[in-house]
């Protein structure tokens, strides 16, 4: 591959990777703390995964097997584009199987298949600051983290309950890490929140445009914010997957005709395909469909 000769392994130069690794290590040492880093201008737009790409680039070694998903799927355009980028610039092996991957870059989902020790899950983060939409000033929010001044965060939840009778945050649901930092888990559905805490894999979060990296080392406590009398609940569509029959996976709703008919399918394409290959068939699925 010609690109490999023109660029360093996994695109970034070694000095930049060292800088990013230092930020990652600091993040791992202080779980949930947002570490500023000198984000580079990448050959893809800010907001399209540049933070995740830089973190992945700094983590990759030639022996790695990379999986890239967007919305849980391996074949969405941006996932395809990022996977190709690393195939071109690092020449590494890629996979769609969660269990086979050593590094997984994701946007908006945590895979259904439980992760294991030694795996790295890299999140693409648009807005790393959980307080941003309550307080727009960076100078102010950093101070709020420093002082653990998180009252405002609960004001938002309080307002939800007083208006809607429940906490009306469906994704990007903030967690408190090891009793200290309030952290933005990136816009994953709150269904995925319980997988953040106590996870065997290393979870790294990269925000390129906002120049922040943060981390959850393996088996870190991450508790979704709530009230004692209004506890957090993970929720999903009240259906089973129409293709593989899984009752407990996160589902995409697909509109199938202009009469408003719809079906529900696993958002995690690898999970759904593996189940069908193993003989689990939903009401509208066939063992080979979608492959």
């Amino acid at each position: 591959m010609t690109d490999q000769t023109a660029y360093n392994f996994a695109y970034l130069d070694e000095q930049t990777k060292r800088m990013i690794r230092r930020a990652i290590l600091k993040g791992v040492a202080i779980p949930g703390y947002q570490v500023p880093f000198a984000s580079r201008e990448m050959p893809m737009p800010y907001g399209w995964g540049t933070g995740g790409v830089q973190v992945t680039s700094a983590c990759l070694v030639p022996e790695d097997r990379l999986k890239v998903i967007d919305q849980g799927a391996d074949d969405t355009t941006n996932a395809v584009s990022i996977r190709r980028f690393f195939q071109r610039t690092a020449g590494i092996e890629v996979t769609e199987a969660t269990a086979d991957a050593t590094v997984i870059q994701t946007r908006h989902r945590i895979p259904e298949t439980p992760l294991t020790e030694g795996q790295i899950l890299v999140y693409q983060v648009p807005i790393p600051e959980p307080l941003r939409f309550l307080e727009p000033r960076e100078t102010e929010t950093r101070k709020m983290h420093e002082l653990e001044d998180y009252g405002l965060m609960h004001v938002k939840l309080y307002e939800d309950i007083s208006r809607h009778g429940q906490i009306a945050t469906a994704y990007d649901y903030p967690v408190k890490v090891e009793g200290r930092y309030v952290m933005d888990p990136s816009p994953i559905p709150k269904f995925d929140n319980p997988k953040l805490g106590g996870n065997a894999a290393i979870q790294l979060f990269g925000a390129g445009r906002e120049q922040r990296i943060y981390a959850l080392p393996p088996y870190t406590q991450a508790i979704s914010l709530d009230f004692d009398d209004y506890p957090f609940t993970a929720s999903k569509a009240d259906h089973a997957c129409d293709l593989c029959g899984a009752p407990d996976s996160y589902l995409d709703e697909v509109i199938t005709d202009d009469q408003g008919s719809r079906m529900f399918v696993c958002s995690d394409t690898d999970f759904c395909g593996s189940r069908r290959a193993a003989g689990h068939i939903g009401p509208m699925g066939t063992p080979s469909a979608g492959g």
Binding site: D149, G151, H154, V155, Y158, E159
Partner: peptide, 21 residues
Amino acid sequence: GVSAGGNVGERLMAVGARHYG
């Protein structure tokens, strides 16, 4: 932009109150 109850409750929540009721 926050309800009267939320305004009064903020300081309580800032010092650790976690029971909505």
